[in-house]
Nucleic acid binder design. Structure first.
Lengths: 138, 138
DNA sequence: CTCAATTCCTATCGGTTTAGTTGGAATATA
DNA sequence: TATATTCCAACTAAACCGATAGGAATTGAG
């Protein structure tokens, strides 16, 4: 349960590669080769990261991607949400209207608490922390 | 991302129903009717809960299920794991051998931290807490 | 102006998982 | 014997996921 998609894992590796190469523009193909990610698949991932406001995509020859912000200003939560959408254990956490049981049900508070626990963890760790291997220090 | 399966949500509702009816044996069919869960589907769920050591299943006429422990002694984590297995954000958290990248990779520590954050939350909340609506109090 | 390298868009595919159904065997009670 | 129950196994339809395919749009270099 709660598995992280390959897509998100690829995205994190790609972002960490960009974080280690901030001085230049890096093509999707180069990232794919360096991080062993299927090249065509990564293209779509990079587009999602761009749409999420995390990287700039420069088209044409010698184009590629670069981080839009310093790695220390990019919470992991933002990367995760750019790919898989919001962390949302059960539907009625965000859309209580559709809950068939009436939405002051007890499990709901439980799931809300879980969501915020996960969100906090992902927000407190930045891309920079991950690149430095400092993910355990708080 | 991180969505909780319908199966697990059904299981939690079923368990909370049993927690509210500890004085007697309750049939799967009764739980299904009370909690609006597909009856036949719930049967399989109850079997999983039984195999997980959470409930006793008494067969034959007037049979049914009851909690094997006090609700306050049942951490939510145990219910979740009985249905969907271990909380495991990425494979190499539990089976580092199969990691293609060599497993001292940085993301790994990050995922391990996430797993233990989630596990802690689920362990700290008991079925009793959920039934009482006290899931926010720590 | 043309070519090549690149992002970006859309469709498709095979495999797996998920939610749920069907049918029935085993077991217990009355 | 009849009935209510757990328990077991196979099946199905739909959704999701990882990946591929084919190209259009854009840009820089020669």
């Amino acid at each position: 349960m709660f598995s992280v998609s390959a897509k998100t894992q690829y995205a994190i590796r790609a972002m960490s590669f960009l974080a280690r190469n901030t001085e230049r523009v890096v093509s999707s193909a180069e990232i794919a080769a360096a991080e062993q990610i299927p090249a065509k698949y990564l293209e779509g991932i990079m587009t999602s990261l761009k749409n999420g406001g995390l990287v700039s995509g420069e088209r044409g020859k010698n184009g590629g991607y670069r981080l839009l912000k310093a790695a220390s200003d990019i919470p992991m939560l933002q990367i995760v949400e750019a790919l898989d959408g919001s962390v949302m254990p059960v539907n009625c956490v965000e859309t209580p209207d559709t809950c068939s049981l009436g939405c002051s049900c007890m499990p709901r508070q439980f799931w809300i608490g879980l969501k915020s626990t996960i969100d906090d963890y992902l927000r407190d760790c930045s891309l920079q922390d991950l690149v430095e291997g400092a993910t355990h220090a708080k």
